[in-house]
């Protein structure tokens, strides 16, 4: 088990290097220059070309690409992601100060998707072919088709403005987490439900379930003790991917709900061509994502004794 984990950690390094290279190249291939963009966005009028050149020099934009990349990667290896061009603050600090808002949202969104999706899938599997099954599956397709932007706005209008149960914005209190998590969770619950359903149906047909029935186990006990643990394994394996979905979804959700998160930061950084901020943030998020997947793999190995005790 130890060896398995060590091996997986070592595998992370080439993945992250590749991510850093790709994001660096894309950012530099995109049109635009941070200094010009910054001034254009200010709509304040003409800046003298000398001033502009000075600014670019002060921002460190004139070094050759290779040098810039080397600064980025060597810094990243020691935990220094450089300074944001626009904010002039250390990138790592900027990310960390916003990270808990995003991670909170992603985790609670994941939790919501499981809390809604797993029972829905189980219900559909239990009444397979019946009208409950059809309703559950329709709900799951609905969830997958609704844009999270629209759902978020609807939730705000119903629960925040009309009913006043939850705030429409902000990222600092617990109850400001409810609506955004639900928006994200409902969308992804569909995928979880479908997977749970098919997994449960498959498990129900397994020989050991037949043995369980032959032993005289009640349906409830059979499901809870014998079926669930097996049926959840495929759901657990996609938890890592789901977390990635959540991270992606936080970009839109953070804007709709005015949450101070990393997603929003990255989007505005891309539009202002803030190289260090985009590169640093994407690398950071990639690391988080890869780590989460590693943890999920470890959980999966622990859940399934056949892998844990390996053959």
């Amino acid at each position: 088990m130890q060896l398995y984990v060590m091996g997986r950690i070592v595998q992370l390094i080439p993945v992250l290097l590749l991510v850093s290279l790709i994001v660096f190249l894309i950012m530099h291939a995109l049109p635009g220059d941070p200094a010009t963009l910054m001034l254009a966005g200010a709509e304040g009028g003409m800046t003298s070309p000398e001033r502009l050149a000075e600014l670019r020099e002060q921002m460190g934009l004139n070094d050759p690409l290779v040098v810039q990349y080397w600064h980025f990667v060597s810094g990243a290896a020691t935990g220094d992601l450089g300074n944001s061009i626009r904010f002039r603050e250390p990138v790592l600090q900027m990310i960390l100060s916003r990270l808990d808002s995003t991670v909170e949202l992603a985790l609670f969104g994941l939790l919501c998707s499981l809390v809604i999706g797993v029972p829905l899938g189980l219900l559909a599997a239990a009444r397979q072919g019946g009208w409950i099954d059809a309703v559950c599956m329709s709900l799951s397709y609905l969830g997958a088709s609704i844009p999270v932007y629209w759902l978020g706005l609807m939730m705000i209008f119903v629960f925040a403005f009309n009913l006043g149960w939850f705030p429409a914005s902000g990222g600092t209190s617990w109850n400001s987490l409810v609506l955004p998590s639900l928006s994200l969770g409902l969308i992804n619950a569909g995928l979880v439900a479908r997977l749970m359903r098919s997994s449960m149906i498959e498990v129900n047909g397994e020989d050991y379930m037949r043995t369980g029935r032959a032993k005289g186990l009640s349906p409830g006990l059979l499901l809870r003790r014998h079926g669930l643990k097996n049926a959840l394994i495929p759901v657990v394996t996609i938890l890592g991917l789901q977390f990635g979905n959540m991270l992606a979804g936080t970009v839109v959700t953070e804007t709709v709900f005015s949450r101070p998160g990393v997603g929003r930061l990255v989007v505005s950084a891309i539009l202002s061509k803030d190289y260090p901020l985009v590169q640093g943030a994407v690398l950071f998020l990639a690391t988080v994502y890869v780590t989460v997947n590693l943890i999920v793999d470890i959980i999966y190995a622990w859940l399934d004794p056949r892998i844990r005790y390996g053959r």
């Binding site: 706005l153 705000i156 925040a160 403005f161 006043g164 429409a168 914005s169 902000g170 953070e254 804007t255 709709v256 709900f257 005015s258 949450r259 929003r264």
Partner: peptide, 15 residues
């Protein structure tokens, strides 16, 4: 308070 979504901004005082 900075609000990311303009329709939400428009309703903040009303609510």
């Amino acid at each position: 308070k900075f609000v990311g979504e303009e329709s939400v901004l428009g309703s903040m005082v009303a609510t």
